[in-house]
Design a protein around this nucleic acid. Structure first.
Lengths: 108, 108
DNA sequence: CTGAATCCAACGGGATACTG
DNA sequence: CAGTATCCCGTTGGATTCAG
């Protein structure tokens, strides 16, 4: 992850938090509000390998974007969901989606 | 630059366009609307080397975020300014700045 | 003044196999 | 089920020097 503390301006903190090949996908999956399990991400993002998936989830967790809840059942259950800070990113991601749509129209 | 055409969802196109160590700074500098010259970026971003500055400017130009105008005077003058697509990014960058402010308050 | 050329280091991401 | 452990590779960013 790009280091937020060497950001030259504040918006780069936000960029640092969301930059990562699968982070936007993960946040999008969690945007419904339903807690999701590790296997759910694997099914919905079949191209991401376990190591990378764990890496992206941990970085988002450390950044305070999502929580990781462990239920010590057998077999173990782990659930991820967005924090308040993570939910606050959703309007930005939606704005990015709208911008990309008009951008793609113009340039293709 | 991350390849926009391998994006898994549309917002990643936007992320691909703005991801780069100095791109947000460049767009922020151009956000006033005044055309700016190469040397202006060098003065205001003293840590970026010529190669990298050129690289970031070219990628933004190729993405259609800014224009590069060459005036064949002696010495040559080159001016950069935001396109309409580039201007459309400003509300998103401002939203990212606001999010980062409340985020930094919570986590520090 | 506005870059280009060369060489190099660091980091993020990935393939594959294995585990509590 | 939900990850770890190794090894590997491409891309990005950077230092330095040179040029139209």
């Amino acid at each position: 992850m790009m280091d937020p503390f060497q950001a030259h301006c504040e918006m780069e903190v936000t960029l640092a938090v969301i930059s990562g090949k699968w982070k936007a996908d993960i946040v999008r999956i969690l945007s419904e509000g339903t807690p999701r399990r590790y296997g759910f991400f694997q099914k919905n993002l079949p191209e991401v390998t376990p190591k990378i998936l764990t890496n992206q989830l941990r970085e988002l967790e450390n950044a305070g974007i999502l929580t990781r809840a462990i239920y010590p059942e057998v077999p173990v259950r782990v659930e991820y969901q967005l924090t308040e800070a993570g939910t606050g990113l959703l309007p930005i991601l939606e704005a990015m989606e709208r911008w990309a749509q008009s951008y793609t129209k113009k340039f293709q």
